[in-house]
Design a protein around this nucleic acid. Structure first.
Lengths: 329, 329
DNA sequence: TTGTATGCGTTATCAA
DNA sequence: TTGATAACGCATACAA
């Protein structure tokens, strides 16, 4: 196998020049370019991907990370520590990957994304399920949605596999002979809620059971309201969109002297820390938040490097973590 | 990612020593070895295969590619050129990536996958939607399913986004005011068929229409049978699981003197070459087969290198290619 | 427009 | 038993 050195020698130029020709840089005289190309042809030279990858690692990229005002609020709120932890962990995954590769990070809120910002970054990570402002939607740089997916947009996304997680756990409960399994969920315009909702629905339908779903916003009031509706169905199992909602439900059930898991069993989604210290401990589907951040950056880097540019959705498997809230004695 | 340098520093030795420990050379004091191993553990250090290959000036990655007997038959059959082309293109994508990286490839049928084979490869690409034999399922090496997905298995997969493709195109037809849209599909135990089926169903249901689906095997007889059932519903649009089925349907409709698109409109899936030369030309959803092969290898390499090891499903967006078969005058 | 020199993460050689 | 250091093939900042 010939190397860049052989080509350079044959063409009578330096390896830097050969490299430039290879990478289509400009600022090369036609004569030189032709000479190099002829040499490449003659030697049937093929650049080594291994070496190329290795050399490419060094490039300093500036990664933009944007969050909605909603998430910004969450990150700054004390009592919703549950959700806060979710995004914090995702961000940690992002940051650690960026740091390891010696890239730089620029974190902004949606409202601060002007043209100058877009121009200053090499790629964009967009966190959370909120509506995207136009300036972000239109930004013509590599983009990756994190914990969000917009089917109509064909933008790369990294999400958790909410469908299969929900589907699996609901089927499991049905196989344990519970039939009255209800779902209390957040607004379905958030993809992650919708995805889990669909998994729940699919499992119920497949088992010939009627899905019973109750929507709520993410406030305690909203959750209480949905919970009361749900309780009127005399459920054996309540499956909530996420752990934050599940934990509030747990709290409310306690107030009503309804015992979990003996009277009603409860399942969340996300596996935030509070779920493992609640009383009883909450059974839930673990979402790999840190890994989600990690892989999102990794995918973005690929896009920036023009590697596997065809847009794709990357969906991370979840794992059922069974704790006390589904272990009825 | 930490490097050999980090480990050396933490262990208080030189990188040469670390390298020795890594490669199990002898002539190292137990004390040093332990220190190095502890550092490796602590940093969760994984050697870079890229750098290792470069230094070794060899690419010892041997990628196993396995296909079912069914696919092997398809690849060797002349008249099923449609499906044949599909898998051929996927394989081309795989091969080109492997060649570029100067890796080696070992292609086998399911029945030839013994332990020796598994031992001889660094990672496994499994093509197509067929049932996996135990020896492959149990192989404890990095694996990626290509054009297949098994929810219960948590194995990495690369697939096309059949749901959204079907959903999008069906909604589009409904918005053009067609209400009698039927779906003729292959066996639903193949994930790709099931996925498209669900996209169709979701779009119909969402628009308040009753999904009308007809299963067939992939033989002409089977397709005819399903087609006749479907025709009894007096459809305005027929959506087929893939182009091969659609093209056979087209042929049968011609025999019946039913005009496409004026009497019935027809939509396929995959975008194989024959679809662009049929009469009329077939509207279809393009599946990026070559890219699918490419990204599958790329993902496998990552897994082999321990990069982003959390299992994930990568789903490639499809594109609607509108040709004559849906352009009713 | 072109060349020089450096670094990417690892292995291997040669000294110490 | 260990450490410095030269490759491996390429990209690129900086000089010329």
């Amino acid at each position: 196998m010939s190397t860049i050195d052989d080509v350079a020698k044959l063409a009578g130029v330096s390896i830097a020049t050969v490299s430039r020709v290879l990478n289509g840089k400009n600022g090369i005289s036609d004569k030189t370019r032709e000479a190099v190309q002829k040499a490449i042809e003659e030697l049937d030279y093929k650049p080594s991907r291994t070496a190329r990858d290795l050399a490419n690692k060094r490039s300093l990229l500036n990664i933009g990370v944007v969050i909605s005002e909603r998430i910004e609020r969450i990150l700054n709120t004390k009592d919703l520590f549950g959700i806060r932890e979710f995004y914090t962990t995702v961000l940690t995954g992002i940051e650690s990957y960026i740091k390891e590769n010696k890239y730089t990070l620029d974190l902004r809120m949606f409202s601060n994304c002007d043209d100058d910002f877009i121009k200053s970054i090499d790629g964009l990570l967009i966190i959370g399920g909120d509506q995207l402002p136009e300036c972000i939607k239109n930004a013509e740089i590599p983009k990756v949605l994190v914990d969000n997916y917009i089917p109509s947009l064909k933008v790369d996304s990294v999400i958790s596999n909410g469908f299969d997680g929900a589907y699996y756990v609901i089927k499991k409960m049905i196989e344990r002979n519970y039939k009255r399994v209800v779902h209390i969920h957040g607004p379905l315009d958030f993809y992650s809620f919708r995805n889990r909702y669909e998994g729940y629905t699919a499992a119920m339908s497949e088992k010939g059971l009627l899905p019973q779903t109750f929507e709520c916003d993410e406030t305690r009031n909203g959750i209480c309201y949905a919970l009361n509706l749900a309780l009127s169905k005399n459920p054996e199992v309540i499956f909530a969109s996420n752990d934050v909602i599940a934990l509030i439900i747990l709290d409310e059930l306690k107030k009503m002297k309804i015992n979990v898991p003996d009277d009603i069993q409860l399942i969340g989604f996300d596996d935030i820390i509070s779920s493992s210290i609640s009383e009883p401990k909450l059974s839930t589907l673990e979402v790999f938040k840190y890994e989600m951040g990690n892989i999102a950056v990794s995918r973005l880097i690929d896009l920036i490097n023009g590697k596997n540019p065809h847009p794709a959705v990357i969906s991370l498997f979840t794992t059922f973590v069974e704790r006390e809230s589904t272990l009825k004695k």
